[in-house]
Design a protein around this nucleic acid. Structure first.
Lengths: 196, 196
DNA sequence: CGTTTGCTTGAATTCTGTCAAAGCAGGTGG
DNA sequence: CCACCTGCTTTGACAGAATTCAAGCAAACG
């Protein structure tokens, strides 16, 4: 239990056994069935979740009722509506499970206390956030500047197993495309490959 | 000197005078003329910059030679190529001044040492990074899901003085549009306003 | 088996990029 | 002080790309 979570910590900081125990005491395991919500629009995000295995997604619903996926969170990733979590305001996002999943929850109080009491945890959180920021900035650049096809192939290179695990229309949503457009782009790519 | 920098810190943490002095000893002021580079593509990002006043921008140049602006950094903002700064690899970005500017530099060693020696500085850096992450995620969502016109009006609401301070073609670049498209969108907005 | 869910396809429409040209400052040097 | 550049914005015409709406099809599911 919590194996992957502590592996993740170990990538960036080393904790004593005592610190590990302390951290562990603030965590709460949870299982989620496919399609089960972790957070629903309008609620306040009480927890940050770490995915031990399975996969979640966070998304917003636009004025036309269409899902707009913001993030996929497979095993080893954190997911939450940070804005709501920090400010305590109602969330505009939904988070739910795309597969049956096992996750680790950390409440806001738990997080605050750990950040204060365990310096290594603060250091980890900072570096984790820094990495996430760099990755997000890269993604933003790509979104702005790559062609549709390039966005898709780059996604495939970054997350090779995503095609097997999430339906295509969700990938389209994540990339900011309609399902039809993505379908046609894939067709174009396949056609070009065969003719060579 | 460093006034705005310490104001920024004070928004999130409180430092003793001794800590302030320590932080100060690791900072380096610098003036930049308009069009002067802080970082050029291919160089390694040695510093993180905080803008005391003036405005910088970070951008990449795509394969066709077109500037793609990633971030505007007016007074009170941090700017750097974090990826290059952390990894030590050559940067793919350029950072230069859009106006004559006064900035505060913090080298990588300085930053590492402050993060280690001044807990409040680590806490600040974490929270700063967290805020930046939330803001970036919001921007990414907008880029993906808003219409061209909505992106532009949202930008105007978020940074009311940006239109006065940066040329329109740079705003277009920041929004991922061609200058022509932005010009036409603005025309459309103006036309609609008058007829009502 | 019928229903749902997801993917594909087509045709029409709207939007955006591209290329080329012209207008409109502000700034500089003569 | 004026003529000239230069950088920036606007316009137009056209081509290409993406969305929309509608329909069909296959696999998965209860």
């Amino acid at each position: 239990m919590y194996d992957r979570f502590f592996e993740k910590l170990a990538e960036k900081v080393t904790l004593t056994e005592a610190e590990k125990d302390l951290v562990r005491s603030f965590l709460q395991p949870k299982k989620l069935r496919r399609k089960q919500y972790l957070l629903q629009e309008g609620d306040v995000s009480k927890n940050v979740a770490f995915v031990e295995n399975g996969m979640l997604r966070s998304y917003a619903v636009d004025e036309k009722g269409v899902d707009r996926i913001i993030q996929f969170a497979p095993e080893g990733w954190f997911v939450s509506d940070l804005y709501s979590h920090i400010t305590g305001e109602p969330s505009g996002l939904n988070i739910d499970a795309l597969e049956d999943s096992e996750i680790v929850l950390m409440s806001r109080d738990a997080r605050d206390e750990l950040l204060q009491r365990v310096p290594a945890f603060l250091k980890f959180s900072f570096e984790q956030m820094q990495s996430a920021y760099v990755a997000l900035q890269c993604r933003l650049y790509d979104l702005n500047n790559l062609s549709t096809e390039e966005k898709y192939t780059k996604l495939l290179r970054t997350y090779p197993d995503i095609v097997q695990r999430v339906p295509q229309h969700m990938i389209a949503s994540y990339l900011g495309l309609t399902p039809e457009t993505l379908s046609r782009v894939r067709k174009g790519m396949a056609g070009r490959k065969e003719s060579e």
